[in-house]
Amino acid sequence: MAKNTEKVLGLIEVILERQGKFTDQVEIQASLQSIGFRSLDFSELCIRMEEDTGRELNFEAVQIRKIETVSDVCKFIDLALKE
């Protein structure tokens, strides 16, 4: 499991819940499309992660590939937070 999974899952739930899109617990294997998690949500998640951790995400360090599931998001954040 990626290091920041719990935090990322919590933030995804907050973001979706605020928009009235999703109220159940988010599953790690869920596809982003099925839970209505879009690029704007992803963008917000990144900013909130930066604020939470006090560190800037390094997007250049991440090999961008298709991000389709919640698990992909967690891995992406983990890589972007690596030194």
Binding site: S39, L40, F42, S43, E44, C46, I47, L57, F59
Partner: peptide, 10 residues
């Protein structure tokens, strides 16, 4: 506006 990844600003 706040600078944001992927979408430029949010």
């Amino acid at each position: 506006a706040k600078k944001a990844p992927f979408v430029g600003q949010i």
